[in-house]
Design a protein around this nucleic acid. Sequence first.
DNA 1: GCGGATCAC
DNA 2: TATGGTGATCCGC
Length: 522
Amino acid sequence: MDNEPTATKDEGFLSRMALNDNKAGMEGLDRDKINSIIMESSKGSKFYENELKKDQQVNQRIEKMMLQKARITQAQLKKAQAQVEKMTLALERSRDLSRVIVHVDMDAFYAAVEMRDCPELKTKPMAVGSMSMLSTSNYHARKYGVRAAMPGFIAKKLCSDLVIVPPNFDKYRAVSEEIREIFADYDPHFLPMSLDEAYLDFTEHLQQRQAWPESLRTHRYTEKENPTPKDIEAKKEEDLSPVLFEESPGSPPGLHGSKGANEGSELFGTCVEEAVREMRFRIEQKTTLTASAGIAPNMMLAKVCSDKNKPNGQYRLPPTREAVMDFMEDLPVRKVCGIGKVSEKMLNALGITKCSHLGQQMALLSLLFSETSCRNFMEVSLGLGSTRISRHEERKSMSIERTFKELSDAEEQFSLCRELCKDLAEDMKKEGLKGKTVSLKLKNVNFEVKTRAQTLPCAVAAEEEIFAVAKDLLKTEIDNEGPHPLKLRLMELPCTLQQPAGRAKRFSIFYSGGLRWIRRIR
DNA sequence: GCGGATCAC
DNA sequence: TATGGTGATCCGC
């Protein structure tokens, strides 16, 4: 009885295809209408058929899990419960509430940059990407259900007025550099997660900040000391920042002092919230773009918090066990970084929707999931996460992939493969790296994916060396397909890298005094 | 080590 | 007409 999901297949399938309202800016819209348009646009496509197939695989996984659950005895459960309790105690003892971790996230980053640079877009629903795929959308477009990772042609059906702007990555990278300079003032070892997002450890900054005079906590309304005529012109056109959002739930960073009254500058206090507000204020003054932030005792929590008052807001979770446990109580598991669509569906099948459920069901979970997953679930349920931010060391893999219109001719497939090898070899050369395992990933026109790999006795870096391996892998696949040709839509060449020897230099980047430094690690 | 899958951005 | 590219990790062989 309880291993039979009550949802129909269609309802279940929605979790994969339908509107993802996990993101901010999606509240109170007509979900049903949006979903029916999405389904209508997708139905019958190769992509849709493949998603259906993957969804059925997930359903089978869930069925298997439910069978396993049905076989669990009271004795097993009791034993597991004892272990879980022991583990919980150990984790509880390790709880560290002493660090102040901040997660910063730019609001609708790519879209906001485009709106900033093209005033006409400010009042329109718009997205950055192409008819095939959108990277992000502004908040006006989100009201129609238009979101990141949605193909543009479907977005157009949801919102016919949608303006789709092609991405300008060089511009986003430049803006990213600007905000990273500010991040560095608060934590020179901050951890960037992408162009628009980073984790910072504010602990040291706050210690120093307590002794800071007001002058160091005062920031001008614009950081541009010598505005160009173009800047002045821009100032005339708009007052300050673009009207990104009609209303913001959070706390805008520069509300307290008015421009004139305070000689064009703003004083910030010494507490965390003031420091973070100051950082967001400086970001807005420097880039005319807004950011949201979360403040918490660890990275897992800070990440969730940064989403809480998005856009243009911040949220602080106090560093007490009580506050943390209260916060986790009703938090949907899907909000936690690392729990995606599939994990959510599996947990839901067990009646687990909120993080507090994880804690209540740990004994059961420990019998159904791997040790790694379990440990993670347990930490999540207790509101635990990393309290130290460490920059990633050297990269572990490097890859290049390309999607194209159906490619069936073997000769063309080999020459494409060579192209990819050439590009990959170039990238590897740039970083002075060598590959240990060369892989070939193929996606056919039905969206089915296959990976083939070969590990080499000696690491390789040159185009010809890589191609020698990749060519063989491709040939095998073509031969295996028998008399029929491979009908490809994507080819990828992932390469796991030879880990640097002990003697090899290892560098990291850090920021200080507005400059970007390369530093040797240890 | 290999291949499939999941996840994040 | 049309559903991305890059990197990491985990699981079960």
